[in-house]
Amino acid sequence: MPVGHFPLQDKIVVITGGGSGICFSFAQLALTSGARGILICDLQLTPAAQDLINQTPDEVHFMKCDVTDWNDLEAIPPKVEEAFGKGQVGDVWIAGAGVFEPKWSSFIYDEEKEGGYKAMRINAEHPIKLTRIAMRSAISVNKPCAVLIVSSGAGITGQYAAALYCATKHAVVGFTKSMGQADIDENCKIVCILPGMVSTPLWTGRSDAVASQFSYTDEVCITPEDVAQGMKEMIEEEKYPGGSLMSIAKGKLRNVLESKLAFANDGSEIYKQFESKCYAPIREIWNGERGTKLS
């Protein structure tokens, strides 16, 4: 059954990219909203994030995490137990780590030497893998969960000067649309927020000319707090079911985008037969993982 109303109160929240920017603002908001515990997963912390941990050592914990390393991602559930108690799992998962067109991982500069685009692993692969880990964790103890992926307005538009970034953000928008059924079948709600330009270290912390190239100014930006409020709404409110997309940008802080399955459920016998056949192998996997966590 769908997750429905899902307040942050008393929830355990896992946040990748929570050391700065949008996701740090969400960590602060979750804490003031009564979250039981917050695990920030990032490569490093800003001074403000470190201060928050120092001031709230029982509620907020840090785990050094390279989101391109699946071993690091798989280590998150054990860290949740270590931080918040044996048998505990994350209730709310934020896939927020991301990069914007660094020269070391760019279609046009083509400086990457590792045999793959690292930006694709950070922006697209990590949210998908984190969602799988989140669902496995929640299903193993028969609990609902919410996963919010931080995409971008670039996930529904194109930009010649940021082709790889747009591709990564389109990927997670398509993934979110495809995961709407998980809310209905598995009590796991996957949603996606698409911010416009936001005043964060992604822009302000750069040493290159990218901010100037894309005409970055504070006047065209929204704040990280604006985005965090939208994230809270998507997680908590029943009107945002799994598969929902919300854009949030200067001049229009809330815009719910249409998200449809390829085959709309019209209640017909043909649809029921299609769904039963198409989804059966997926449902079998989740059923095998349900309630399997040892106490």
Score class of each variant (00 low, 15 high):
3 V>G: 01
4 G>E: 03
5 H>D: 06
6 F>N: 00
6 F>M: 03
7 P>Y: 05
7 P>G: 03
8 L>D: 00
11 K>C: 06
11 K>V: 02
13 V>G: 07
14 V>H: 02
17 G>D: 03
22 I>S: 08
24 F>P: 00
29 L>N: 10
30 A>T: 08
34 G>T: 10
34 G>H: 08
36 R>W: 10
36 R>L: 13
40 I>V: 14
40 I>T: 08
41 C>T: 08
42 D>M: 05
43 L>M: 13
46 T>S: 15
50 Q>E: 15
51 D>Y: 14
55 Q>Y: 10
58 D>A: 14
61 H>W: 07
61 H>M: 09
64 K>H: 13
69 D>E: 09
72 D>Q: 01
81 E>Y: 00
82 E>A: 00
88 Q>V: 06
93 W>Q: 00
102 P>S: 11
103 K>I: 13
105 S>M: 00
107 F>I: 09
107 F>N: 04
107 F>M: 12
109 Y>R: 07
111 E>M: 10
114 E>P: 01
118 K>N: 05
121 R>E: 03
121 R>I: 00
122 I>F: 01
122 I>R: 00
125 E>N: 07
126 H>Y: 02
127 P>Q: 04
127 P>G: 00
131 T>H: 03
133 I>A: 03
134 A>F: 01
135 M>H: 06
137 S>F: 06
140 S>F: 03
141 V>I: 15
141 V>E: 02
142 N>F: 09
144 P>L: 05
146 A>G: 07
147 V>N: 05
148 L>F: 14
157 T>F: 11
158 G>Q: 11
159 Q>V: 13
161 A>K: 15
161 A>D: 15
161 A>M: 14
164 L>V: 11
168 T>P: 02
169 K>R: 13
170 H>N: 09
175 F>R: 08
176 T>F: 09
177 K>A: 05
179 M>E: 11
185 D>A: 06
196 G>R: 02
198 V>W: 05
203 W>I: 15
208 D>K: 10
209 A>V: 11
210 V>E: 12
213 Q>W: 13
215 S>T: 14
222 I>M: 07
225 E>L: 12
227 V>I: 14
227 V>M: 08
229 Q>Y: 04
234 M>C: 07
236 E>L: 08
236 E>P: 04
237 E>D: 12
238 E>A: 08
238 E>W: 06
240 Y>P: 04
244 S>P: 07
245 L>W: 06
246 M>D: 05
248 I>A: 04
254 R>W: 13
255 N>R: 12
255 N>T: 11
256 V>D: 10
257 L>Y: 09
260 K>D: 05
260 K>G: 07
262 A>T: 09
264 A>Y: 08
270 I>Q: 13
272 K>W: 10
275 E>V: 10
275 E>N: 11
276 S>I: 06
276 S>D: 13
278 C>E: 12
278 C>M: 15
278 C>W: 15
279 Y>E: 09
283 R>S: 05
284 E>L: 13
285 I>F: 14
285 I>M: 14
286 W>Q: 02
289 E>I: 11
292 T>Q: 04
295 S>G: 12
295 S>V: 10
